[in-house]
């Protein structure tokens, strides 16, 4: 049963990657990454049980915190630099960076 749950989570991670690749807006991509990281926490916890090493749970806990920090960091960055569509983001970013410096 542990193996079945692990496979299900891997499938969901693949679905999240698909959404991250085709996602039309930046926010769809961040959402997909957020979901991917939550699933990573579950995957690490499950793998700890599959391999009989519950020490993995500490790593899962650290991953849960990193997930939160990374989502907030990306949003903070996107609020500062205002890249709405990833198509012309580079130009805008470098422009605002120049203005900063």
């Amino acid at each position: 049963m542990l193996i079945a749950a692990t496979i299900a989570i891997i499938i969901v991670m693949i679905l999240a990657i698909i959404r991250g690749v085709i996602g039309p807006t930046l926010y769809d991509r961040i959402l997909a990454v957020n979901m991917f990281s939550t699933k990573t926490v579950l995957l690490i916890a499950l793998l700890g049980f599959v391999m009989g090493r519950p020490d993995f749970l500490d790593i899962a806990m650290v991953y849960a915190l990193i997930n939160f920090v990374s989502v907030i960091a990306v949003l903070h960055f996107s609020n500062d630099f205002e890249f709405r569509s990833s198509a012309h983001s580079d130009a805008k970013e470098s422009k605002s960076m120049e203005e900063d410096s």
Binding site: Y27, I30, L31, N34, T38, V41, A45, P54, L57, D58, A60, M61, A64, L65, N67, F68, V71, I72, L75, S78, N79
Partner: peptide, 23 residues
Amino acid sequence: KLVMILLMVLFISPASSHALAQS
């Protein structure tokens, strides 16, 4: 440890999804 992971996920997920929606 599992209870703590569950609590962390439950406390963190509304905060990050609200930040995402607001942004």
